[in-house]
Structure formats: structure tokens, C-alpha cells
Design a binder for these strands. Structure first.
Lengths: 147, 147
DNA sequence: GTCTTGCCTGGAGCCCACTCCAACGTTCTA
DNA sequence: TAGAACGTTGGAGTGGGCTCCAGGCAAGAC
């Protein structure tokens, strides 16, 4: 892809909106470390990041969007290997469409299940917290157990 | 604590309800591996498990209850180290009451935050899945990106 | 007796997702 | 021209949460 903004190779800070970011800017923006950004690239989770004429990474807005999506997948608890799989499928083209959809649907089901699990832990926690709230510190009533 | 069921040292399977379980029975019951059960004990997450006269572990119902609670904490995503901390606090007695309560409340807040995060990933997933559902495989319309 | 099954122990090993390191290059500021 | 600040690489290290292993004991079945 031709870089339309290459006239000035602006080397430093840059308040966003320029579609040409250094690795540390992206780190600040995404909350990922520069280590992690480079690692994502090495393992194939981040496709072909553009480089400046001196070989430094220059991220574009579409890279930030991809990273945002990856961030969401990370929040779902999806394994990094599976995200790499998804990225691979995208690269491979249209015929991988069913597998990609299946991956997303499976992930969605996972998330729904995990939400339910968390809700169940919430009721246990609320029950315990309720006991603590009712019971004066001295008289430990319905307590768990440790000897 | 005196073991009221010790007359017969029943060596094998045992359908639950006897308040005297071998490690493999507990593993089956909890879904944890025997390795993990021993490991929990080593790191102080499991207090003083009773032993048979030959030195084998004999779990009681209160141990199963504790393990069930630990299982819930595990589902919350609480670190094992924090669970150990909680177990330690219980052992230390009533004066640790405020810290225990604080731990549970903090965990609860964590869970609530995680549920919100998961809900937000759900809407992203649904959006993507929607795109896949609308778009015929051939014409990949609003796709993410990988080059 | 010996075979099998189940249990014991301490310590090593494994997988995941980073995280850091050494050695070096590039560019801006003074 | 020097120094600071940022960037590059491949490979090693870290921490969490298990997981496995070797070597051995105990007890029922044949």
C-alpha cells in the first residue's frame, strides 16, 4: 500500500489522527507494552506493520483498529494461539469464512457461559459478605472452616 | 476433631455421604486432579487434611465444602495467592475479620467489572457475527483487515 | 509370594503470555 | 561532536498454575 503521508517523516510525538504512529505511541494508546507489540508481530497476531525508511515501525489507523479488536478478544479470555488462528484465516481469504464464523460463535458461547459462572460466584460472594455484615466481628457465626 | 466413622477403614470406592473420602474420590467429585489437591495442601490453600492410620489423606465433608468455595473463588479469577491469603486470615482468627471482608468485597467488585467487560466483548462479537451472517462468503464487505 | 492398584513425597518440568536483555542503529538537541 | 531518547533484533528469563516423575509403601486378589 502506498503511504500518502510520507512527505515528512515526522520522528516524534504526535497527538493521534495522523495515521502514522511509532511503537511507543501505540503502546501508550493501547496499554500494551512495546515488548508485547513486537511479540504480537513475531507470533503472527499482527500482520505486516509498515516501516519508516530507517526500518522503524509505523503503525496506521487500521493497525490500531485491529489491535482494538484483538484487545476485545483478549478480554473474552480467548487464547493467543486462537487469535493467531483467526488472523491466519483472514489472511487466507474468503474460503475460510465458515471457520472464522465458527470461531466467533464458539467464542461468543464461551463468553456467555463465563458470564453465567461469574454471576453464580457473585451470589456466593454476596452471601458471604452478607454473613460478614450481619455477624459482629467477635462471634464468627456461619464461617467457612480452616482449622 | 474426633472421627466418628473410623471403625472401618474402608479402603475403596464409596458413594459419597460417608464423610471420609480418599483423594481420588475427591478428585472425581471436584474435578480437580489429585496432583492439584496435593498441591493446594502444600501451598496452604487446603488446611490440615485428616490422615488414615497408614498416612493416606481422608477428606471430610467440610473439606469438600471448602473446596467448593475455593472453586467459586477460582471462577472469579482470583489469584491462588490471594485465596491462600484468605485461608491464612481465617486461620488467624477473628481479628482478621475486616481484611477478609475487604478481600471479598474487592473480589466482588472485580467480578462486576469483568462481567461488564465481557458484556462489551459480547456486543463486538455480535456485531462481527452479524456481518458474517449478512455478507455472502464471496463478497467480504466490512472485514477487519489482515494484509 | 507377586501382581495390581492406589497412595505417599519432594522436586522437576510444562505451558502460557508476556517481559527483559545485550548489543547496536538512528535522529534530535545543544 | 556528544549525549539523550528512541528504535531495532533474537533469544533468554519470569510468574502463575498446574502437571508429572521417580522411588517407595500398603493392602487386596490370585
Amino acid at each position: 500500500m502506498v503511504d500518502l503521508c510520507a512527505s515528512v517523516d515526522r520522528p516524534f510525538p504526535q497527538p493521534t489522527g495522523q495515521d502514522r504512529y511509532t511503537i511507543s505511541e501505540v503502546a501508550r494508546h493501547t496499554g500494551l507494552s512495546v515488548h508485547t507489540l513486537r511479540w504480537y508481530e513475531r507470533i503472527g497476531l499482527m500482520p505486516h506493520v509498515d516501516r519508516s525508511h530507517t526500518g522503524q515501525r509505523r503503525y496506521h489507523n487500521h493497525d490500531l483498529e485491529w489491535l482494538a479488536f484483538v484487545g476485545k478478544l483478549r478480554l473474552t479470555g480467548m487464547a493467543v494461539a486462537d487469535m493467531v488462528r483467526y488472523a491466519d484465516l483472514l489472511r487466507e481469504g474468503d474460503h475460510t469464512y465458515p471457520e472464522r464464523l465458527a470461531l466467533l460463535v464458539a467464542t461468543r458461547e464461551d463468553v456467555v457461559r463465563r458470564v453465567a459462572e461469574l454471576q453464580s460466584t457473585l451470589s456466593v460472594l454476596d452471601f458471604k459478605i452478607g454473613i460478614y455484615a450481619e455477624t459482629p466481628p467477635a462471634a464468627s457465626g456461619g464461617e467457612e472452616l480452616p482449622a
